[in-house]
């Protein structure tokens, strides 16, 4: 038997990589994913290191230097209508955006995964009821749904996060359910059931880790989406309230200066655009790498 063991396992030159590590390895070769990743890392560093990156305070007003043009003084990107340093406000704004992105995606993920997992795993009438409810939620335009929720809860940054998170739950639930349905049919689930594994063990320890890839892609896209939505809500006055340095709010409050001081509107807009682009690029790269159909 021993010689056979040797024969059976020798001569194989398989690298000792997990699927995840292999995916990371392949991600290195994906240009758009790398660009996205760099943008996101920059965005996170900016948020974390905000006080050290700028000598100014985001909310200190100095009327004397209001609407200073960019690239002429120590205020690199210029100042806004109240004389606040624009770059500082954008840097601090990234903190708000990061928090909004994580928390609202966290909300959608938690409930989306739970709902999708239960609905997909048990099927039958549970699935039918849950999915009809999800269908109804999906039939309401996303922005409208968010606005309704904020209107009910009252305009504030926290409520905006909740609204964005809740209104995205159906998307996640659908993605999770679809991959659970596919994963559930695999023999290894039957095998583990025949070993005596309980439903919760099967759902959370076996099915969920195997259906995580599309959820991961969805969540990455979701962060960008949430940042965009929160900017939109703040723009409409339903999200962050002044004087918070939030990108959407910054754009909204400087609408009237579009012609006279273009930079006050433009730079926060560029910040939103870059960040959302970063998350979308990374998500696209992840999708390419994690999609098994893309593998040979």
């Amino acid at each position: 038997m021993n010689t056979e063991i040797k024969e059976n396992t020798n001569k194989q030159s398989i690298e000792k990589n997990s699927l995840f590590k292999e995916a990371l390895f392949q991600l290195k070769g994906n240009k758009s994913a790398i660009i996205g990743f760099i943008i996101i890392v920059g965005f996170i560093l900016m948020a974390v290191l905000a006080p050290w990156l700028t000598p100014f305070e985001p909310n200190s007003q100095e009327i004397s230097i209001r609407k200073t043009a960019p690239f002429v003084s120590s205020h690199i990107l210029g100042t806004d209508d109240l004389g606040r340093d624009l770059l500082t406000r954008i840097i601090y704004g990234s903190r708000v955006s990061l928090i909004i992105g994580t928390i609202s995606v966290g909300i959608s993920l938690t409930f989306g995964i739970l709902i999708g997992l239960i609905s997909g795993y048990y099927g039958g009438w549970v699935d039918r009821i849950v999915m009809r409810f999800i269908d109804i939620m999906l039939a309401i335009p996303y922005v409208l749904l968010t606005i309704v929720i904020v209107a009910l809860l009252g305009p504030s940054l926290v409520n905006a996060m909740i609204a964005i998170g809740v209104s995205q739950i159906p998307q996640y639930a659908r993605v999770v359910r679809a991959s659970v349905l596919a994963e559930r049919e695999n023999d290894y689930i039957t095998a583990e059931r025949s070993l005596g594994a309980s439903n919760s063990e099967l759902m959370f320890k076996s099915i969920l880790p195997n259906s995580i890839a599309p959820i991961f892609v969805q969540a990455t896209l979701g962060v960008g989406n949430a940042i965009l939505s929160s900017a939109a809500l703040s723009f409409l006055g339903l999200g962050a309230q002044p004087p918070t340095s939030e990108w959407g709010l910054m754009i909204a409050s400087s609408r009237e200066f579009v012609t006279s001081a273009w930079w006050i509107v433009t730079f926060p807009g560029v910040a939103v655009l870059l960040t959302v682009l970063g998350f979308n690029l990374l998500a696209d790269g992840l999708r390419d790498v994690l999609d098994p159909r893309m593998k040979d």
């Binding site: 010689t3 056979e4 024969e7 059976n8 020798n10 001569k11 194989q12 030159s13 398989i14």
Partner: peptide, 20 residues
């Protein structure tokens, strides 16, 4: 037949059936 087919990546000029 004992053993398994060798990895085609590592095979050189030898007879591929040699290990089995």
């Amino acid at each position: 037949i004992k053993g398994t087919i060798p990895d085609l990546l590592t095979i050189g000029n030898e007879c591929p059936f040699e290990n089995r």
